[in-house]
Design a binder for these strands. Sequence first.
DNA 1: TCCGATACCTAGGACCTCTGGGTAACGAGA
DNA 2: TCTCGTTACCCAGAGGTCCTAGGTATCGGA
Lengths: 106, 106
Amino acid sequence: MTPLLQGTLDLLILKTLSWGPRHGYAIARWVEETTNDALEIQEGSLYPALYRLRQRRLVKVEWGESELGRRIKLYSLTPEGRDELRALVKQWNRCVATVAKVLEAR
Amino acid sequence: MTPLLQGTLDLLILKTLSWGPRHGYAIARWVEETTNDALEIQEGSLYPALYRLRQRRLVKVEWGESELGRRIKLYSLTPEGRDELRALVKQWNRCVATVAKVLEAR
DNA sequence: TCCGATACCTAGGACCTCTGGGTAACGAGA
DNA sequence: TCTCGTTACCCAGAGGTCCTAGGTATCGGA
């Protein structure tokens, strides 16, 4: 599996949460499904990332229960998280455009 | 300055060298010019990267002289470097497309 | 009873990039 | 003559992110 491009994980997590609250395990599954397994989110990356995002108050957490009746930690975006997501998307697009400029230059 | 997305530096260097041999300093200047200073290649990143690329035999080096009469280290792509560049470009495009899939999902 | 899936987490290492230094030669300008 | 900016090379150390490889626990199904 191609390793994740460094810096994209926060973006992916925040974007996933923009559809509504989800728990960690579900975030990973959702990204994998959406990308047809092209992106694989390792739990060893995911949970530390969620922890960081929480420290930065970009996401908040509540305990909940899954459809299967399991105890889950439901993550959701804070307003700051929403702002950060917007900023990250903009930054990502700019970055892609810039690299494209180099790749297409002659 | 936005930090470089980790993993793009090799791609940028190899791409720059695909236009012909260049020395380290010129690589940095070229990328900055091409991107209108949107990307800034730090020398503290550049030279270690060039060293790694050399270790992996993706680039080779000769001493030369600049137009200004200064002693320079001219880097150029090896055939393996050319292959790697092709692979990196493909990987980059795939990655961009995949992230786009997540960003555009609903 | 045991396995796979669900669900959480951590420690440690690997890797890359940046910060902040250093060296040296040259030309221009004061 | 001296200094400064530019060109050109380099390194050590810090910081951050991600992955590997473990661990725990519950539940349903074979």
